[in-house]
Amino acid sequence: MCDTCGCSQPPEAVTYRKPGEDPHGHTHDHDHPHSHGQHRHESRTIAVETDVLAKNNLIAAQNRGYFDAKNILTLNFVSSPGSGKTTLLEKTIQKLTPKHKIAVIEGDQQTLRDAERIEATGAPVIQVNTGKGCHLDADMIHKSLHELSLPDNSILFIENVGNLVCPALFDLGEAMKVVVISVTEGEDKPQKYPHMFDAADICVINKTDLLPYVDFDVEKCRQYALEVNHHLKFFEVSATKGDGLNDWISWVKELVSS
């Protein structure tokens, strides 16, 4: 059984590529021993007491252990499509390198486009194409880690599939989830998609350079998000123009050194 989401596809439909490489799928392990013991016929109840996402959560815990052991800071970026995650990553990488070693896992249903943009910054990158899947899961990260061979004391950015619903449920082993919302979206998105804002630790409000042209109330957006998750910390940035990026970068640097 393939455990990737939305799955009308065999496991090998998920591909892992570096820019310029041919796709090569990884098969999941199918280790189901078959035994034919005694057959009972009476009806009975078996206690299971298992989290439905136990398998994902176990692999996420293994990923987290790997990150802790190698002192790798991992941030999982989630948002709806088009909020500017990739641009924010490009600018962040440019400001943090070469002092910090950074690698990126890019999640999209199709294409190498985001990976090619990240590669242009010089950071090692793996593109995970999920096919019809709507989110990254912990096993995809685990397999990507084998491809990336991250150095100790580095930073890993994961750009999840653009989707404000499903990625909220799947722990990848990251230190924090960063939800990005752009001012060209509605300020009420935190209340329309509360699961994601509840799951996030950080909220980046992006494209602030466009505020004069759109009806987006930043304060209302913050208020809506805080009503869902009062632990959220905010950054307001324009990734393209650079406004607010210094605060964001300083915060990432502090995280690395802490």
């Binding site: 989401c5 009308s8 078996i46 299971v48 709507c134």
Partner: peptide
């Protein structure tokens, strides 16, 4: 397959039940 994560959840349930 377009039904988002509920399909993924359903498949996890089938997997855990089958193993049990």
């Amino acid at each position: 397959s377009r039904l988002m994560h509920e399909m993924s959840i359903a498949m996890n349930i089938v997997e855990i039940v089958s193993a049990t």
